[in-house]
Design a protein around this nucleic acid. Structure first.
Length: 491
RNA sequence: GGGGAUGUGGGGUAGCCUGGUUAGCCUAUGAGGUUUGGGACCUUAUGACCCCGGUUCAAAUCCGGGCAUCCCCA
């Protein structure tokens, strides 16, 4: 047998499972898991767009529900705004225009009629919300005014697109809020950061660092931008929710005024916050996944339990149904009646990442026991059937914590202090985040940041919100340092 | 922004250099059957050369153009 047919055989087999471990080749692992666990179908024939398949949709729906509940509890009211934004709105705020223009999809025609004023497919909805804010907000009694919507937005990305991580259409929540004072607005920004921690870390198990972005890297039209960076296994960071303290320029451009207690008309202060479900999903996949495939925190698992009857005899199928009924509302259960061999079904549920698998065969039936497998620990054990519910409760309670614990380890030892560009390059090239003293994250520091981009191929992510003491010199230009910044490659 | 590749059934690929039979293989999918405790097997069926032009008796293969996609570097 020659080499090429050996390879074919190997390739053929790998088509079912993953051909590489996550740690040995993350990039290949990621594209494989997207296809093989049926998260998304990339064959849709518009570049940068993909079909979201059930296994990812079910998870993202849960994320949405969770996020929306937290936001509503904190006083945000839900809206659905139109997808189209008139060019006129869009052009009102100069900084915004400059930042988003290169990425906007335009609708220029309806049927045969060419529009005189084209319409933007929203890349974000400030300019849609704000014109309505101007109509709705009258008095200080209307403030704070806190809204959100779940929406899909469109951006003509010029960087390489990747499924879920960066697509030209993505799914997110955007909050838009208005306040009477800058102080109130700043408190909202802090609340947004707290929300991010509650949801992303405490519920979804994703570790991140919140940075204040340098002045040259703020949201177009914002005064200050704070963003959570999640670290990927390959050492690159992914920007997750960001929250923005917006300049009053927007309120002025859209004429959003309120009559204050003193009888005077004043402009509001606005903030916005944008957690992207599709991108958070990408982080859940890449952070929690292992060599066998996906793993999910219980709360956002597409399904919780898969029951695999070893063969298709009616007694086993009946037993599976009975167990499903008994689990009832406690967890979402699928019974796998596909005609694949048991081994293949075991493997495919592990790849798909259900937290618990229950195998039922004649052996279990006879002994009144169940073979159970928990994905967080990849541990298989035999339990008495009557212990089933307490076992599920235990896994529900522990599995998210276990994943979180594993994920928190990621940052450990990955932050390396450096004092020169050379050291920085070395640290970044070996998959770390570099931390150094830096002249300034105001405009003055931009030149040094450009040097870093050019020499190291990485970006200044900003300053950690936890205050860090500065005593030395900028690692790039050698002038007196004012900040400690983190530098990383990003997606 | 710069560079390098590649387009062959649903997915992954061989064939291309050196033009020539019915375009091979793995996988997926449909049907039938034997199986079933960690990625089974048999029979059978469906299904492809990116587009336009050129060279030629003959093009998946060579040439030109277009379109699309992927990778790397800064």
């Amino acid at each position: 047998m020659d080499k090429s047919s050996d390879k074919e055989k190997k390739d053929g087999k790998s088509n079912k499972g993953l051909s590489v471990g996550k740690s040995e080749d993350f990039s290949t692992w990621y594209s494989e898991i997207v296809q093989k666990a049926e998260l998304g179908d990339l064959r849709y024939n518009v570049k940068g767009f993909l079909v979201f398949q059930p296994w990812s949709v079910l998870c993202m729906e849960k994320m949405y529900r969770h996020f929306e509940k937290v936001l509503q509890d904190k006083g945000h009211e839900p809206y659905f705004f139109p997808t189209l934004i008139p060019e006129e709105n869009f052009m009102k705020e100069a900084g915004h225009v400059e930042g988003f223009m290169p990425e906007v999809f335009w609708v220029t025609q309806g049927g045969e009629t060419k529009f005189k004023d084209k319409l933007a497919l929203r890349p974000t909805s400030e300019t849609a919300f704000y014109q309505m804010f101007a109509l709705w907000i009258r008095s200080y009694n209307d403030l704070p005014f806190k809204t959100y919507q779940r929406a899909n937005v469109f951006r003509y990305e010029t960087k390489a697109t990747r499924p879920f991580l960066r697509s030209r259409e993505f799914h997110w929540i955007e909050t838009h809020c208005a306040f009477a004072s800058e102080n109130d607005a700043m408190k909202q920004v802090e609340e947004d950061m707290e929300t991010t921690k509650e949801v992303l870390h405490d519920s979804f198990g994703l570790p991140f660092i919140f940075f204040e972005r340098p002045q040259w890297d703020t949201f177009p039209g914002a005064k200050k931008t704070f963003a959570a960076d999640v670290l990927n296994p390959d050492g690159k960071v992914v920007q997750q929710p960001s929250t923005h303290m917006i300049k009053q320029d927007f309120a002025k451009a859209f004429d959003i005024k309120f009559k204050d207690k003193d009888g005077k008309d004043k402009f509001v202060y606005t903030t916005c916050y944008g957690p992207a479900m599709s991108r958070i999903f990408a982080s859940v996949v890449s952070v929690h996944g292992d060599d066998k495939g996906l793993r999910f925190p219980w709360e956002i698992a597409p399904r919780h339990v898969a029951i695999v009857p070893i063969d298709d005899s009616s007694e086993l199928v009946e037993k599976a149904k009975e167990i499903k009924k008994r689990i009832g509302e406690f967890a979402e259960v699928v019974i796998d009646l596909s005609k694949k061999t048991p081994g293949e079904r075991f493997n495919s549920w592990e790849m798909k990442g259900v937290p618990v698998r229950i195998d039922i065969g004649k052996k279990e039936l006879k002994e009144g026991k169940l073979s159970v497998f928990r994905r967080d620990l990849n541990k298989k054990e035999v339990i008495a059937e009557k212990e089933m519910m307490s076992y599920l409760e235990k896994v529900k309670k522990e599995s998210t914590k276990n994943l979180m614990k594993g994920a928190d380890e990621i940052f450990k030892d990955r932050i390396v202090d450096v004092a020169s560009v050379k050291e920085m390059k070395k640290a970044i090239d070996s998959g770390n985040i570099a931390r150094c003293e830096f002249c300034s994250i105001d405009k003055d520091g931009e030149k040094c940041a450009e040097v870093i981009e050019k020499e190291v191929g990485a970006k200044v992510r900003g300053t950690n919100l936890k205050k860090e003491s500065v005593k030395g010199k900028c690692a790039v230009c050698g002038k007196k340092a004012q900040s400690v910044v983190y530098v990383a490659r990003d997606y």
